[in-house]
Each structure stands twice: as structure tokens, then as C-alpha cells.
Design a protein around this nucleic acid. Sequence first.
DNA 1: CAAGGTCTGTGCATGATCGCACAGGAGCCC
DNA 2: GGGCTCCTGTGCGATCATGCACAGACCTTG
Lengths: 297, 297
Amino acid sequence: MENWDEIRTAYQVARLGTVSGAADVLGVHHATVIRHIDALEKRLGTRLFQRHARGYTPTEAGRDLLTVAQATDEQFVQLGNRIKGQGESVSGELVVTSISGLSSLLVPVLASFQAKYPEVVVRFLTDMRLFRLDYGEAHVAIRAGAAPEEPDNVVQPLVRIKTGLYASESYVAEHGRPAGEDDLAGHRFILPDNEAARAPFYRWLRERVGADRCIFRTTEPQALEQALREGIGIGFLSGHRAEEGEGLVEILPPRSEWDSPLWIVTHVDLHRTRKVQAFVTHLKEVAKGWKLCGPAE
Amino acid sequence: MENWDEIRTAYQVARLGTVSGAADVLGVHHATVIRHIDALEKRLGTRLFQRHARGYTPTEAGRDLLTVAQATDEQFVQLGNRIKGQGESVSGELVVTSISGLSSLLVPVLASFQAKYPEVVVRFLTDMRLFRLDYGEAHVAIRAGAAPEEPDNVVQPLVRIKTGLYASESYVAEHGRPAGEDDLAGHRFILPDNEAARAPFYRWLRERVGADRCIFRTTEPQALEQALREGIGIGFLSGHRAEEGEGLVEILPPRSEWDSPLWIVTHVDLHRTRKVQAFVTHLKEVAKGWKLCGPAE
DNA sequence: CAAGGTCTGTGCATGATCGCACAGGAGCCC
DNA sequence: GGGCTCCTGTGCGATCATGCACAGACCTTG
């Protein structure tokens, strides 16, 4: 029962009763229809139709095929409408992935997007590993750092995250507040312990402070911020994180050379769909109102 | 959503995750699979798969297609099994048609056939008009008279119905019994009024009896027999009908030149099916035991 | 009774589709 | 890291399916 096209032509013949009528509906020559029927019957070893000069009358087997193929046809038509409509409507799942440090920034965006398009189910994934867009794991990824260069990925700049040097009030109370850029040497610092350490502001810091002054290193961004807030040392923090909560003192204000660019990354296969486009434009729109973030590029 | 073969191809790709795997299952070259997918996506205007070096991952639309086509595939497999099995099993409807005069002969055959194959639903159709086998109106027709010569029909001789000249006891009591072939002139006769009048025994009668002696004519065989039994006149009757019931007197015994041949007619498209073959052999078998019927041909 | 329309069926030439071969890329195992 | 395997993707030639034209059969209509 392979070759579904022959089943389809047989279905039209059974439905309309004539080869010519089926050929018209199918948009092929009636000779093609005859050959399809012949091939199908030969493979099944049973006659599907009784042939006569006025047309084809389905046998029991032909009537059986008619009902089955009728249901199939309806299913396929509905499927086609769903798929064609889906590309143009904003519904179904929207999977967004990013590094976990951006969740406080992104969750409000996702919430307002879902409110704007109630039919959308939003899934926000963060994980140690990078989710791969080309395996269909996510529609949109928000990436930080150097511009991603994977092929088949569409990369757009979003904003530049401003980063400053902060300490907790408890730290300042105990160790004093550095007067400025040249007064950092004797202080204690908190640093990441992974590839994030290559960020420009960390390179800037290492040029001015000895390695022995970095008294706390962690791979977990969450732990880094917590250590900062508990007064263990001075550390870099993005502007939007520093604004959150109370008790942080700005040691050095953000500088443009410390900016960390954010990128919107989508797979080229999905980039043109209305759903992804809707989210990307929504994200960019909201990002315009973000304080402590510079414009894209 | 035309071209069901492409849907089938996409289904296998979605199911297996790779183009090569789908090509193996489908028995085609993997280039064909790629082209099918490309064509289908182009027509739908949506991507069904995310392409990457390790295979094809279905998108939402692809997953939707997967579930629909999965159900379709199962339906088609079941349909194929039903149709292939149907040709070899004896089940479903068996439609038999004949002239109404043969019903007393055929009904016992149909009954025993149904008992032998309980899955069969027997339909016995009799009508003034001839049912046309090439329109699929019946599987088997039992015809009388000259051998049918329609093309695409398989014609086999069944038996020769013996016909004699009979009258009722009441008629004999009133008008006397003809002594023999030469003593018919003064009697009253019952004749058919349609093409059945061309039967050989009626031609034989008209050569010996004046037209004014045919006092009762009807197109309805049932009425003819009833008129005979009620003593209106003398008439021809097939042997098996004369045996039925009481009160008939044989005026002249059956002659071989009066025999009316019966034919089994089947459409060539259905003739080879097991169901039709089973019925034809069953019918021939039973017919061997028919009294007052000569052997075929 | 004849003419016209509609249907099926078949040989032949064209065109689309398929298979083949090869290139290129990605992951895996040693 | 190098070799290996499995995957996708594309140009080209052969094959197969398709379209065309025509014949034949049947029914309908004037």
C-alpha cells in the first residue's frame, strides 16, 4: 500500500465515478488516471472498479478505499490549512533560551508578549550548555559577548548591557570605599571562573589588581552576585542587576568599554515566521525602555 | 495539500529524523527525499524541518504532519490488508440476479451457500429489467435463453431446464385431456406476451394451434403459472415448477428440443475473485442434483 | 436514424523525476 | 588530532511517468 498518489487518484475516481472527471479535478491527463488505477489494482491483486463505457463503478474494495481516502483527504486539507495558517498566526509554542543571568531582564518581556498574544505558550530555557537552534531546540536565543558566527543563524544586535563596579554597604562599612580607579589595589574582589572571565571589564580589572586580591571565584553567576551582596568583596555587576534590591554601592560607574553586547539569534529557517518576528520586534520595543542599557551597537 | 507521496516522504523523514533513513525505508534515493521535502515546504510556504548535518528535525508543522500522516499510514495499511484479504476470503456481499421464474430453484442454493460461508451477506435481485453486471449491480447473473454475448462477461452453461405441457386437474375435468400431440387443436392455451414468447416450445405450439386458441396472455410469469393452475388453459411449464404443489396433469412430457438453457454470467473483473468462484462452484454442485434438468450443453 | 457529445483506452514523443556519483561538513572513536 | 563514518546537498544522464492525439464505444438529442 505504498504510493499514496495512486490512492488519491483512485479516491477521486471512486468519488466522481468517471476517469475524466477525476482527471479534471486532479489536474492531470485522463490517461494518467487510468494508469494509476491499473497499477494500483495490479499491486493489490483485486479490482477496485468495474470498467464500462460510461465510467468506473467502485467495487466493494473501491468503496472501502473511498471512505478511507475521504477521511484522509479531509485530514490533509485541515493539516494544510493549519500549517499555512500557523506560519502567519502567532500561536503555539515560543521557545526562548538565554544565559540564566538575563532572566530578570527577559521574564517581563516574555510575560508581556504572552499577554499580547494569548494563544502563545512561552517556554524559557536556561542551561549550562548552549541550546542549539539548528536542532530546533529553541526559536530565539539571547546571547551575550562576541557576536555569534554560526552559519544558518540570523544574528541581530539587541542592546549593550552597561556594567559597573559595585560593593555592598556592609563591605564599605568594613573596608571603606575606594576613592576611584587608582584606589583599588588593596581591596578584595569577586570574579567569575569560566569563559565569562574574558569579558572586557575583567581584563581591565586584572591589569590593575593583583591575582591575590581576587579572593572569590565562581562559575555560577547567581553565586557571584550573592557573594557581592553579602559583602565578601567588590565585583562587576550589570546595571539592571545592581538596581535590583537594596544595599549596593556604586564603586565605579559603568563605562562604555565595559559594555557587554546582547544578541538576538534565530535560526534562518524560523526567522521569517510571523511568530518569531512578532517576538523579536516586541523584544526590541521593550528594550528601548531599558535603563542602564545602551543602544544596540 | 496535493501530492500525497510527498506527504508520505515527509512523514518518514519526520519519523526517522534523517533523510537517508527515510530514503531506505521508502526504497528511493535520498536525493529524491530531499527534493520532495523542498517541494512540499515551498508549496506550503513553511519549513517542516530544521536541516543540520546530523539529520532533519521536524518543526511544529513537521510534528503536526507526523501525527496526521502516522494515522493515515496505519489506515492505509489496514485498508490494504482488508482489500488483499477480501479477494481471497469469502465474505461481504454476494449479489445474484436472475429472472424471477428461477427464484424457487435458486433460493435453496443461496440458502445453503450462506450456511456454508456464514460471513457472506446474500442479496438476490430480480427485476423486469436486466441488471447490468458491468455497472457493478451484481456479482453473478443467472440468465435463460440464448447464450449472452455481452463483452467483458464470462458466460458458462449451467443446466438445461426441461419444459413440458401441463394443465390443471380442473381443466382436464372440464375440457378433457388431449390424447397426444395431434389432439391439441380444440383446446385453450396460455401464453406469455413478451420476448419469452420466442422460446422454442412456444414456436412449436404456434405451428400447431391457431392464434384464436391462445385465450390468455400475460407478461408476468407468476400470473401465467397461476392461470395454468386455476384451469384457464393448457400451458408450458418448467419441470421444477410443475413438480411444485399438486393438481397438475402432464399433457406432453418434456422434449429435448424444448429445453431452455441456463447460463451463469459473471463480469470478467469479478470472475476471478474467490467469493464468486465459491458461489459458482457451489451452484454447479447443487445443480447436479436437480431433477427435471438436463446436463449443461 | 443520424449526428453530436462524453466516456474509455492505447501508441508515441516529450518532459519531469529519479538514481548515480561526488563534494562537503559534522560527529565519533581510537 | 587524525581517520572514519554518516549525514546532507547538487550537477548530470537515464528512465519513467506524463501529455497528446486518435480510435472506439455508448448514450442522448434532434
